[in-house]
Design a protein around this nucleic acid. Structure first.
Lengths: 151, 151
DNA sequence: CTTTGACCTCAACCTCTGTTGAGGTCAACT
DNA sequence: AGTTGACCTCAACAGAGGTTGAGGTCAAAG
């Protein structure tokens, strides 16, 4: 059984897939989309630096709350590309994400409360109700394919 | 300019589209998917009962927090089909939805807190971290197209 | 009676987030 | 030398959630 050789700081695509729980095809896809990067060996195999695990975890966590890959890429683009991100870099990133998450939480809470109040009381078909026009955001959705809330 | 005639309790597809802020094509689509229903006039035009506005509002609100149409349809299937849903019917529905929303809110809050703690401290690449394996739900995502959290 | 606008159907297309498969390379082990 | 397993590329397909367009019907207004 051939073993992939990696230096201490490099991971093969299989290793990243295994440790992150993400399929290899998804990692290839993320790379095509510019969310992660790799170097290549002489025989053209991908090698990832260890902070890729962190990026992938960040991607999955963000996706999990309904943020698009495009938005995630924009966030990740704030990380320095010339050097390995420091804990500080990540902290800044997570701080900006926190704002986003706070907004989403607030939105969900408002929705939950509206739902309980509004649906029960019968106002759901009226334009004044938050549910029929919540935060000016529902119902504005223009043409184009349906999108999940991007913040 | 021809005006669509409707009885007091019936709405044309254009009226529903206008009042709900949803495109006509989307209403057709929802109907194909079994989320709303219509009767037909003699000339084959759709007519919607007024509670359709409520259904559509419910659909959009639910979608907006990332719930799939399939899950929404299941929820709506709990409403009586033989009669117009009463406020009580809606209240029951919203109560069950509230549980779902509570869970999502809790999840988001956990994620937000993990993100702030975890990314900053550098544990993000470790398997013990909630973010890399949050609530046993991230990283388990099997094969198949990526899905948003369906609760 | 023609025009206009709202409606109908059906098929094709779109984006997003990937997966699957065919065909090929490379290094290690037997 | 042959086999094995991990890796590579590229193209095609999947499923969710719709939109767009072609071609046609119907009823009211001019």
């Amino acid at each position: 059984m051939p073993r992939a050789r990696t230096t201490f700081h490099e991971l093969t695509v299989g290793q990243v897939a295994h440790r992150s729980g993400v399929a290899i095809s998804a990692l290839h896809f993320y790379e095509r989309q510019g969310l992660i990067r790799s170097t290549r060996t002489l025989s053209n195999q991908r090698r990832y630096s260890r902070d890729t695990l962190r990026r992938v975890a960040f991607i999955r966590a963000s996706q999990h709350v309904g943020i698009s890959l495009a938005a995630i890429r924009e966030a990740l683009d704030q990380l320095p590309s010339e050097r390995t991100p420091t804990p500080d870099d990540w902290a800044r990133l997570s701080a900006s994400w926190r704002t986003e998450l706070d907004a989403r939480i607030a939105h969900l809470q408002a929705l939950r409360d509206d739902l309980t109040e509004c649906i029960g009381c019968g106002c759901l078909s009226l334009r004044s109700c938050h549910l029929t026009n919540p935060r000016d955001v529902l119902g504005r959705e223009g043409p184009g394919a349906r999108r999940l809330p991007q913040g």
